[in-house]
């Protein structure tokens, strides 16, 4: 049996809302440690991997590991029907592995709404990626910045063109674009520390200058999720997809991997 409860408007609900513009269907794996989800965007440019540790939920129980495909858009639609103050329960019983049950309970416990959502096949959304601690060392540059700043950069650049070039070296982190109507270049002088301050842009890992071109549509989507958190961490490599990460509590995360554009 798997069962988690959360208050309406909790972080999981916020994140599911925010990933909807890229993701329809997701693979969800539940274990005693927590709730993880993997999904590909419809054009297969972005891979999303998130993990919510059990302690971020109001209550969490998972007797046996389980894996299921969920139509996220339908689930979010159902969750939207809850009222302020409701406690939301998501449950899968061992006897029935064809759907999940979502329950809303009003704060005064006088009203309960039960809904069943059919599970779907989402196995094609599963990709093979290395353990994060092995992968992190492959990134040439990793920096952190306030999420609001990241969103602002993406918005300012998308006025001019569809693509952004992110360049990182020891002295500067820049976001730039060039279009028919002009160009924009936003430069940040980074701090260099392992303990980034919330308000600043910090270069945490630097193994050599790197620059990548990315479609702003995907970057804006990443930025949207990141604004649910104070800080966003961005990793660049010439051999791996761009990584955009937000931390959830001590051990949790949301990671977007975005395939950069390549010049032939």
């Amino acid at each position: 049996m798997f069962e988690l409860t959360m208050a309406k408007g909790s972080i999981l609900q916020g994140v599911l809302e925010a990933i909807l513009d890229l993701v329809n269907v997701a693979n969800v794996d539940c274990s005693s440690k927590g709730f993880s989800l993997q999904a590909l965007d419809t054009e297969h440019v972005v891979f999303l991997s998130l993990f919510f540790p059990s302690e971020v939920f109001r209550s969490y129980r998972c007797d046996e590991d389980c894996s299921m495909g969920i139509a996220i858009a339908d689930m979010v639609d159902l969750l939207r029907a809850s009222n302020d103050g409701d406690i939301i329960t998501i449950k899968v019983t061992d006897q029935n592995f064809e759907d999940i049950t979502i329950t809303f309970e009003s704060p005064d416990k006088t009203k309960t709404t039960d809904m069943d959502l059919q599970l779907v096949d989402a196995r094609s959304h599963r990709l093979k990626i290395s353990e994060w601690h092995d992968m992190e060392s492959e990134y040439q540059a990793i920096f952190c910045m306030p999420s609001a700043q990241f969103m602002l950069n993406c918005k300012s650049l998308s006025v001019i063109d569809d693509d952004v070039v992110i360049r990182v070296n020891e002295e500067v982190i820049s976001f730039s674009t060039k279009g028919k109507s002009g160009c924009v270049n936003i430069s940040h002088v980074p701090n260099k520390t392992d303990n980034p301050e919330k308000a600043s842009v910090t270069l945490t890992h630097m193994r050599g200058p790197v620059s990548l071109t990315l479609n702003l549509r995907y970057m804006k989507s990443c930025a949207k999720v990141s604004t649910l958190f104070d800080q966003v961490k961005i990793g660049l490599s010439t051999k791996l997809p761009l990584m955009v990460e937000c931390k959830i509590a001590e051990k949790g995360y949301i990671r977007y991997f975005v395939a950069p554009k390549i010049t032939e």
């Binding site: 440019v45 891979f47 093979k128 693509d163 997809p241 991997f257 975005v258 554009k261 032939e264």
Partner: peptide, 14 residues
């Protein structure tokens, strides 16, 4: 302009 590869160019199917 530059081309957009898919993410499966980096990560294989599980």
């Amino acid at each position: 302009g530059p081309k957009q590869p898919t993410i499966t160019n980096y990560f294989g199917r599980a």
